[in-house]
């Protein structure tokens, strides 16, 4: 029951994340959407892996823990990149035409 609920919720959250990533203009919001998505992926990973009486599968937990740390590392780096872009261009978005020209 718990699992079913969470899988359903995570699926919807995944969809919301995809939607947010595609429509958001502000880079911060795109990153938030990505983080929301990754949380939902982690939930599904854990539920799918199943487990025994002592709790969920320990290997899956370890994978997710690794995933969480990688997500925060990537987010931190992306934020630094965003600030640099903002300093250079005065905008926190990357949707612009004519980027191919110099």
């Amino acid at each position: 029951m718990t699992e079913i609920l969470f899988v359903l919720a995570a699926s919807v959250v995944f969809g919301i994340g995809v939607w947010g990533l595609l429509i958001a203009e502000h880079l911060l919001r795109k990153l938030l959407a990505l983080n929301v998505m990754s949380s939902s992926v982690f939930i599904i990973m854990l539920v799918v892996a199943g487990g025994g009486p002592d709790g969920p599968d320990p290997v899956a937990q370890a994978l997710i823990l690794t995933g969480i740390v990688i997500a925060v590392a990537a987010t931190a780096f992306a934020l630094a990149l965003m600030v640099s872009i903002y300093r250079k261009t005065g905008r926190a978005s990357i949707t612009e035409k004519g980027d191919d020209d110099r």
């Binding site: 699926s11 969809g15 995809v18 599904i44």
Partner: peptide
């Protein structure tokens, strides 16, 4: 795309519960 993604994930997630 978002709806598709959510539906996809829900289907596979739920079918995985039986495993």
């Amino acid at each position: 795309v978002a709806l598709l993604a959510a539906a996809l994930v829900a289907t596979i997630g739920l079918s995985a519960l039986n495993i």
